[in-house]
């Protein structure tokens, strides 16, 4: 597989994405240069594709990913990998708000911190954040795992319906209707195995596994005051 360069610059994003797909279809891997933190780069990439973005990208990079391997050299804006089905996205810097929003499968690996509502409404897959996850991460997630290696900001796992938020390091506060439970040894082994496979093995971590307290599953409007945060 040879590597070819696509330049984003100020070209219309539709044209940039068409060119990325054309180069991929010829059997190449693609490096995108001069990304200028622009939005919607590399959306809907197919299985087997390999795309690397130099610099930073804007919103929705790698959204609807269907099996591609995508790497962002620096930072990503909002909703990286939104609604992705499968595949892998690596962000080497900071990932903005709503990383992995509504994702259904695959893996997002953020090497810096992640912004607020990381994994919002996710339905499957894994998000690994080597830094800290932002305010209200895991908000209304249904399934999947968010794994944070350096703590979580306030209101962690707020209104979690299902899925798991794993935090090593301090959790500033829990959001509504979530609770910390003792993980089973085989669950810890599964998380550590995933991390070890990415060069992040460390068996000394003290995990806080956060799951839904399941009270909001049976919401009654007369109880609304119990859920109001302000």
């Amino acid at each position: 597989m040879s590597e070819v360069v696509v330049t984003a610059g100020d070209s219309p994003i539709r044209e940039v994405n068409i060119e990325i797909r054309a180069r991929l279809a010829e059997g190449n891997s693609v490096v995108v240069r001069d990304t200028r933190s622009r939005h919607n780069l590399g959306v809907g990439l197919p299985a087997g594709a390999k795309v690397r973005f130099e610099g930073s990208v804007g919103y929705y990079c790698g959204g609807l990913n269907d099996g591609a391997f995508i790497e962002v050299e620096r930072n990503a804006g909002w909703s990286t990998g939104e609604a992705m089905a499968t595949g892998e996205i690596i962000v080497n810097g900071y990932a903005g708000m709503s990383t992995g929003a509504s994702m259904r499968g695959g893996l997002i690996h953020v090497k810096g911190d992640a912004g607020p509502r990381c994994g919002v409404a996710m339905k499957g897959g894994d998000i690994i954040v080597e830094g800290k996850i932002g305010y209200m991460s895991g908000f209304m997630a249904h399934a999947g795992r968010i794994i944070a290696l350096s703590g979580a900001d306030e209101a962690c796992a707020d209104s979690l319906w299902g899925g798991e938020v794993w935090v090593a390091g301090p959790v500033e506060s829990l959001g509504v209707d979530s609770k910390i439970i003792e993980p089973e040894p085989e669950e810890v082994a599964s998380v550590e195995e995933l991390l070890a496979g990415r060069g992040l093995g460390d068996n000394s971590r003290e995990w806080q596994k956060i799951v839904s307290a399941q009270k909001l599953w049976h919401f009654e409007s007369r109880d609304a005051s119990a859920w109001l945060m302000i």
Binding site: R36, S56, G58, N75, G77, G115, P116, G134, E154
Partner: peptide
Amino acid sequence: TEEQAVRMVYPGNEDIINYDGP
């Protein structure tokens, strides 16, 4: 509001700060 705007005046490798918290 967006990184792509500040990159218009800082097109290099300057570090950005995201004030994303509440």
